[in-house]
């Protein structure tokens, strides 16, 4: 009980500190920008730990963070194997294939106005569908190993990337294209020097959406059948054994992998589209 009250007290204090910080002059500095959300995150963890331990919530309902961390540290080899199976073999290879295919398709589609008109509505229609439902079919076709997961990921990332790329390729302005014509630039030169660069912000938008989808696709596809390794497999079997600390450890891995993947793509975007208004740093 004392622990629960202690956690609530900590929460009140931290919240008060956050309000003070946010309204002080520190808020606009780098330190303030980082400190406030971190303090909030830590508070949530402390509150979770304190309430679970203080009210003695059974571990099969909600394990405290410390238990999850202990489990994480104790089973790094299992987690690493699962990560390799699901993320590197399944999600990453599917992502590369799907993005590559969508890219090639987008450039083909872009050459023919007729195809673009037809494929864009169909593509954006399919992008809004619950594509994850194809997982059982693809698992049936490609077997239980990582190939079927990669196939699910390919299907999931294909349409968002396609739609965004096609949209991006049309984003170069008329006057810029005319300029390329006056330079007597050929199709490929125009594509390479003008239209691809100006499509980059759109392409990266699609790529960023696709990072999350890739991980979701790889994990959910494992619910329909998998070898005895993999994040989705571990989650569904550990839930069955009520080993919730393992499930949470696996979720922590998924969260870390997901944000790292997204972060990498965002970093690449920053490097490649430094000229775009949304990336320019504001001078004060």
């Amino acid at each position: 009980m004392i622990l629960a009250f202690g956690a609530i007290l900590f929460w009140v204090l931290a919240w008060w500190a956050n309000i003070r910080l946010a309204n002080s002059t520190l808020a606009d500095t780098r330190f303030g920008m980082a400190a406030v959300p971190i303090l909030f995150g830590v508070t949530l963890l402390v509150l979770w730990e304190g309430l679970v331990r203080g009210l003695s919530v059974p571990g099969v309902i909600l394990p405290p963070p410390s238990m999850i961390a202990a489990r994480f540290a104790a089973s790094t080899s299992i987690l690493w194997a699962d990560f390799r199976q699901t993320f590197i073999k399944g999600a990453l290879s599917g992502y590369v294939i799907g993005v590559g295919a969508a890219f090639a398709m987008a450039i083909a589609v872009d050459r023919y106005e007729f195809l673009r008109r037809g494929l864009l509505p169909v593509g954006s229609f399919i992008a809004a569908l619950p594509v994850i439902g194809t997982a059982p079919i693809l698992v049936m076709w490609f077997g239980f190993d990582w190939q079927s997961k990669a196939a699910v990921v390919v299907v999931m990332v294909f349409f968002p990337v396609l739609v965004n790329t096609v949209q991006g390729l049309t984003s170069a302005e008329r006057i810029q294209r005319d300029l390329m014509t006056t330079y007597a630039a050929g199709y490929w030169q125009t594509l390479w020097k003008l239209r691809l660069p100006s499509a980059l912000p759109f392409i990266f938008n699609g790529l960023k959406i696709a990072t999350t989808l890739a991980l979701i696709g790889a994990i959910v596809a494992e619910f329909f059948g998998s070898p005895i390794v993999g994040m989705g497999f571990r989650i569904s079997t550990s839930v069955g054994q009520l080993a919730l600390d393992m499930v949470w450890a696996e979720i922590a891995v998924a969260a870390l992998a997901g944000s790292a993947f997204y972060g990498l793509v965002a970093l690449a975007e920053r490097l490649l589209t430094f000229w775009h208004p949304s990336q320019r740093r504001q001078k004060t």
């Binding site: 919240w15 956050n18 309000i19 910080l21 946010a22 309204n23 808020a27 303030g32 920008m33 406030v36 959300p37 303090l39 909030f40 995150g41 994850i132 990072t211 999350t212 991980l215 979701i216 994990i219 959910v220 619910f223 994040m231 989705g232 989650i235 569904s236 839930v239 919730l244 499930v247 949470w248 696996e250 979720i251 998924a254 969260a255 997901g258 944000s259 993947f261 997204y262 972060g263």
Partner: peptide, 26 residues
């Protein structure tokens, strides 16, 4: 509320990069 903005917003944005669906079975 500025304090809420600064504490919650980064997490709300970060949470979009996390495969939330993975916790569904649990």
């Amino acid at each position: 509320n500025r304090a809420m903005d600064m504490s919650v917003m980064p997490w709300a944005i970060a949470s979009q990069t996390i495969p939330i669906l993975a916790i569904a079975p649990m």
